[in-house]
Computed example of a mutant assay.
Amino acid sequence: MPTDRRIVLFDLFGVIARHQRPGALAKMATRCHTPTDAFTTAYWACRPPYDAGQQSAPEYWTAVLRSLSLSVGVDSDVDTDTIEELRLSDIDSWSRVDDRMVAYAQSLRAVTEVALLSNIPSDHADAFLTAQPWLHTLDHVAFSGRIKAAKPSPAAFHHCVIAMRAAPADFLFVDDREENVRAAQAVGMNGHVFTDRDELAAAIDTWLPSRRPTWR
């Protein structure tokens, strides 16, 4: 049963934060002396366990490199220093935020609860929390690498429900990926597919009748 609470649950990348920096994967591929297309395929194919906290960063990068038929270790194709370079380059490539969306999310806290659910490895999460102190002002922050569950798994959404002591219907989940919004709706949350800030603001204004944020 829903309560009288209202919680806007934001995705991070593609909503409040920018997607991966253009050209980042090509630079990482060059560092590994491998074609960009092949590197990109391996990068994403190996990603789910890393996002869900089932692999460490070295384990993830070893899996990526081995899928490219590159050996890892002393006197091999790639050494541990290269793996650390790739890890840091990867973190940097996901480090940009949309300042206007950050300001909007913060403004909403005057009228409703605001939380975040993001697919992000735990080491990326640590870096993001250090670089973006505004995250600490939110009512709850759930990073997949820390909660051991990644969208669109129902477990990721159930974590937020339990952690916030709320009902699924109390949430409006905002994500730029329709499959994730559908997954949230399947567990009983309200959902909105993000396209731009103005459209989102209109949707939230409708969802919060008689209460309006003051960001405009």
Rank of each mutant, 00 (worst) to 15 (best):
D99M: 11
H140N: 14
H192W: 14
A125D: 06
T62Y: 01
W94C: 02
V111W: 12
T62H: 03
T82F: 00
A127H: 09
R96N: 05
I162T: 15
M101F: 11
A166W: 06
H192D: 05
L70R: 11
M101G: 07
A103V: 07
D126F: 00
V141I: 14
L70K: 13
A127E: 13
S67L: 02
H159S: 00
N119L: 06
D81Y: 02
S118G: 00
F157C: 03
L116P: 05
P152M: 08
V111I: 15
F194D: 11
N190A: 12
N190M: 04
M101S: 11
S153Q: 14
D176P: 15
L172N: 06
A163K: 12
V97E: 05
S107P: 03
S118F: 00
V64N: 09
D90M: 00
Q106W: 03
L86S: 07
P121M: 08
A115Y: 09
L70N: 04
P152A: 09
H124F: 12
H124E: 01
L65G: 06
V74D: 13
V97T: 14
L88Q: 13
S107F: 02
D92Q: 13
N190L: 01
A105F: 08
A127C: 08
Q132K: 14
V72E: 05
R182K: 15
R87Y: 05
E113N: 06
V187M: 10
M164N: 05
V102E: 01
D92T: 10
I120H: 09
D175L: 00
H192Q: 08
P154E: 09
Q185E: 15
W94F: 03
S67C: 01
E179A: 08
A155W: 02
H140E: 13
P121Q: 13
V97C: 08
H158G: 01
R96K: 02
D90P: 02
T137G: 09
K151I: 06
D175M: 00
T62M: 03
P121S: 15
H124Q: 03
D90I: 01
F173N: 03
D75M: 09
A150T: 10
A183V: 06
A115W: 10
D170I: 05
L129R: 12
P154Y: 09
A155V: 08
V102I: 10
A184D: 06
Y104M: 06
A125W: 00
W94Y: 05
S144A: 09
Q106D: 07
E84H: 12
L117S: 07
M189Q: 01
Q185N: 15
M164T: 15
A103N: 04
E178G: 10
L117I: 04
H158Y: 12
W94L: 04
R165K: 15
R165V: 01
K148N: 13
T62W: 04
S71V: 03
E84P: 05
